[in-house]
Design a protein around this nucleic acid. Structure first.
Lengths: 164, 164
DNA sequence: GATGAAATCCGAGTCAC
DNA sequence: GTGACTCGGATTTCATC
């Protein structure tokens, strides 16, 4: 007999404490073996395996990806770009977004409320490389009225694991 | 020119074509088994294993992390915040950065050149949650003169894999 | 110095309970 | 949820180029 459990603990998310620990541990190290994971969450390997599978099936875990060090593959420069479009119509937004997703150097593209329409986060080799891409690719995107470039001088925190 | 191998191919990075394919494949799916990876890059499992280990040891692969779906764990709202500090002194920057890294909801914090000193990328439950954090935590950070908030209305691309 | 074949070891995945 | 069992992959060894 198990002492009382804590499903639906703090969120209405269908996760108990064990599920959350699995998520946090795999977020820190996606290569953890199921055996090791089981030890860390105080469950049997079989139980842990089923839990993890369920977390994937139900969409709590989206993917597992290796992180490549940008500096080591010639993408050491990070740039944030604010974009303003000519017109704020659904067609204008759609055309811009369609063009953006085809660009390989775009890490983030977010539609925002405020003085800009979009913020882009871009990785390139260096500033010279960015200037070329900016002139040849970015200002040529459909409906772009204006861009403002913010070169990143120091990456204090980049893509930190999600806390929850 | 001899048609043999292609170390030092396009970068001065010490990576040949096989290494690059390993990096790209693991970036897409960090759970690939070594056996499967070996098939995809046309190498023996032993060779592939050695290559992958070397890529970790030499820092090309920084980590493997599972991606938790933010919406499923109560972090469905994304916000970009531009920050301006009171003074542009090294001490001022250092104090701000030290305080930032202790905040759990910060995904990105980048020192930039331009109209802002820093850009923050933040995940929270909802706008109400952000307003509370903004009032209680962000404007209370050391040296903050002004913040500008950009609520993300649509995540067009978020944390895309690095192309290289 | 890097490779691939083979041999061993250990965890993933599945079963009955 | 637990324990046992099987299969396949991870990891090492070694001969070879």
């Amino acid at each position: 007999m198990k002492s009382g459990k804590q499903k639906e603990s703090s969120e209405g998310s269908g996760l108990d404490r064990t599920d959350r620990r699995i998520l946090r541990l795999l977020q820190q190290d996606g290569r953890l073996t199921n055996a090791e994971l089981a030890k860390r969450v105080n469950a049997s390997p079989a139980t842990c395996h089923r839990r993890t599978q369920r977390l994937f099936e139900e969409g709590y875990l989206r993917a597992v990806r290796a992180e490549v060090a940008p500096q080591r593959v010639g993408r050491g420069a990070l740039v944030v770009v604010g974009v303003v479009l000519d017109r704020s119509t659904p067609e204008s937004f759609a055309a811009f977004e369609k063009a953006i997703v085809a660009l390989p150097f775009i890490l983030d593209c977010h539609l925002v409320a405020g003085d800009f329409d979009y913020f882009l986060k871009i990785r390139v080799r260096d500033i010279a490389d960015f200037n070329r891409l900016h002139g040849e690719r970015l200002i040529a995107l459909p409906g772009v009225r204006q861009t403002r470039t913010f070169f990143v001088m120091k990456e204090v925190v980049d893509n930190a694991p999600l806390e929850f």
